[in-house]
């Protein structure tokens, strides 16, 4: 197996999840990942393998941000179609609350993670991608700035705002869990 193929295989799943969280659509996410793969192979296959990760993430981020620009334009042009989508989204968020009924701690942990992912999914795209690159991909502030094509102060601001929202939801979820546990015990 070629080095570049091994690299793509190692990153494709994570890339797909990042794109899925940003687009909330598997087909679009797959297209974005495939485009990033094609661009990396066609343009940067000759580069040093240690550069591939940064380049791939940069291409993917550009694709995600472009997708969002086009989507927001579509939303403005065809606003009547999206009102219905938003209603459906709210319903799916509400259905999450029902899954919280499980009393087991491990199940709660899993559900907490899932619910935090749902919060990440609904963050503004730059906050979301900043959080994923910093927290999940483990990039530094300067690396994140380079990948996203923004300055380091913007990275810090986006990350801080994302963390603020997650803290807010985490506190609510922890409170909810404490109440549920108390009810089970009594």
């Amino acid at each position: 197996m070629q080095d570049i193929e091994r690299f793509l295989q190692s990153i494709e799943g994570r890339a797909l999840r990042m794109a899925q969280l940003a687009t909330r659509n598997e087909a679009d996410a797959l297209d974005l990942v495939q485009d990033a793969m094609i661009k990396l192979v066609n343009r940067y296959a000759a580069n040093a393998p240690e550069e591939w990760r940064g380049l791939f993430l940069k291409i993917l981020e550009n694709g995600i941000l472009d997708w969002h620009r086009k989507e927001s334009l579509k939303r403005r042009l065809f606003f009547w179609r999206h009102e219905q989508d938003d209603e459906n989204e709210t319903t799916s968020e509400h259905s999450y609350a029902h899954q919280m009924a499980g009393p087991a701690e491990e199940l709660w942990r899993d559900q907490l993670g899932e619910r935090l992912l749902a919060v990440i999914e609904h963050l503004p795209v730059k906050q979301q991608q900043c959080y994923l690159l910093r927290s999940w991909e483990g990039l530094s502030v300067s690396e994140t700035a380079e990948v996203m094509g923004i300055n380091q102060n913007s990275v810090k601001t986006h990350f801080f705002r994302a963390m603020e929202k997650l803290r807010e939801h985490y506190a609510e979820l922890a409170q909810e869990h404490a109440t549920t546990r108390q009810e089970v015990n009594t």
Partner: peptide, 20 residues
């Protein structure tokens, strides 16, 4: 903040699980 590490741990675990 106190919860930051826990939040990051939970999200990372959930993300990794969603990939596998």
């Amino acid at each position: 903040h106190d919860n930051d590490a826990a939040i990051q741990e939970h999200t990372q675990r959930a993300l990794n699980r969603s990939v596998t």
